[in-house]
């Protein structure tokens, strides 16, 4: 299945935004492991994952066409 991965903050220095091919039924935790394999620098960062603009539990299964956002600590204001 394909999902769209959005990146923000310092994560934009590590991986580009775009479509990623994942095994059907992947959970957020599994996607995190996969991303760490593809982009080892991600392992050094703390970040949350949102699915379709909502912060997600690690056990949630991602669906075809979903949008994932990788969110490092916020720094507005």
């Amino acid at each position: 299945m394909q999902v769209y991965v959005k990146t923000f903050g310092k994560i934009t220095d590590i991986l580009p935004e775009g479509t990623v091919e994942l095994p059907m039924g992947s959970t957020v935790a599994e996607i995190r492991v996969l991303l760490h394999q593809l982009y080892p620098a991600l392992q050094t960062l703390t970040y949350k994952i949102a699915v379709n603009a909502r912060l997600s539990e690690e056990t949630i299964q991602v669906q075809e066409g979903d949008t994932l956002a990788l969110l490092p600590p916020y720094s507005g204001g």
Binding site: Y74, S75, G76, G77
Partner: peptide, 13 residues
Amino acid sequence: IVEVVKFQLPIWG
């Protein structure tokens, strides 16, 4: 609300 904006809204500087 200042604290909310700085730490809970998805904004990056």
